[in-house]
């Protein structure tokens, strides 16, 4: 059970990390890691490249933010409702997108996500360019005050683990088997009697809901929901995170998200801030050209060849 040991080590690391690093930064990493994992479920295991996942991240964020400001609901309910909202939006997007394949699938998701972006830009409840600021974190179950960053971090960690577990389970479920079969040979799956579009759709909905969960959580962490999260840049960033970490590997997106978020954080503070997009672009090019299987994919190859 090597895997089990590795997971326990990682868990211990995650539990101890906030004593060394700034908890809000760590929480941010976890939110993006969950976002990337959700995206990877679609790209890596169903072979579907969505270019509109920001719409779900942002929707989760806005719904949760709005509810926290205006409704007096407890954070766990607000997050749940944000997640459901993202899932519902995903159900609509998915219905339209799975009918197309390849680049057309990506274009449909991009177009729909842009539609959502302009909706949030214009809608009065999002405060347009300003976003929802000063979102209260509230108290978990009405009992545990989340305003302390340390407490918030551990709450995010629990959410992340739950989301990560669900993705892992989905991949290793009877449904996941069919999904992989569809990715491998769609016509053959059809000829065995599987309505492939139904399976793709369900994968899309799960992925969208988990992306929204990441967005909802992120809004609580930063006490902010803004247009950045629904912008198409964000849809591109999650692709980058997944590719750098290793598409189709379970842990890859987590590493990829950690890598990209860390890089952004350090670069944007220093004098390199103006070059951040150039550097990210370079990373992307290097990744695609020389290690297409990403960090984790590369490590696994190394392990196979040397042990």
């Amino acid at each position: 059970m090597n895997n089990m040991k590795l997971n326990l080590c990682l868990l211990a690391l995650a539990l101890l990390a906030p004593t060394l690093l700034y908890p809000v930064f760590l929480a941010k990493v976890l939110c993006f890691a969950l976002f990337a994992c959700a995206f990877n479920l679609l790209l890596g295991f169903a072979g579907l490249l969505s270019f509109g996942h920001a719409a779900f991240l942002g929707t989760g964020g806005y719904v949760t933010g709005y509810l926290m400001i205006h409704s007096g609901l407890t954070p766990e309910v607000a997050i749940l409702l944000g997640t459901i909202a993202g899932g519902l939006l995903g159900a609509i997007f998915g219905k339209l997108a799975v009918k197309r394949e390849g680049i057309y699938f990506a274009m449909v998701t991009l177009a729909l996500a842009q539609l959502i972006f302009f909706f949030y830009l214009q809608a009065p409840f999002t405060n347009g360019e300003d976003g929802l600021q000063g979102v209260p974190r509230g108290a978990l179950f009405g009992l545990i005050d989340l305003s302390d960053n340390m407490v918030m971090y551990y709450f995010v960690l629990v959410i992340f683990i739950a989301g990560y577990w669900l993705i892992n389970r989905t991949i290793h479920s009877p449904f996941g088997q069919v999904l992989k079969a569809i990715r491998e040979n769609e016509d053959r799956a059809t000829s065995l009697g599987y309505d492939v579009n139904h399976y793709k759709w369900l994968a899309f909905v799960i992925s969208a809901a988990l992306a929204a969960l990441a967005g909802s959580t992120k809004t609580l962490v930063f006490e902010l929901a803004s247009l950045t999260d629904v912008h198409w840049h964000m849809s591109g960033e999650v692709i980058l995170m997944t590719l750098v970490g290793g598409v189709g590997t379970i842990f890859g997106p987590v590493l990829g998200a950690g890598f990209i978020v860390t890089m952004q954080n350090y670069l944007s503070g220093g004098e390199m801030g103006n070059y951040i997009h150039i550097i990210m672009g370079a990373v992307f090019v290097i990744c695609v050209l020389s290690f297409r299987s990403g960090i984790v994919g590369q490590l696994m190859k190394f392990k196979r060849n040397n042990f």
């Binding site: 009877p174 088997q177 069919v178 139904h198």
Partner: peptide, 11 residues
């Protein structure tokens, strides 16, 4: 085949 919450071990 739609059960995404169950382990593939049942297969």
């Amino acid at each position: 085949s739609f059960h995404f919450w169950r382990s593939e071990k049942i297969l």
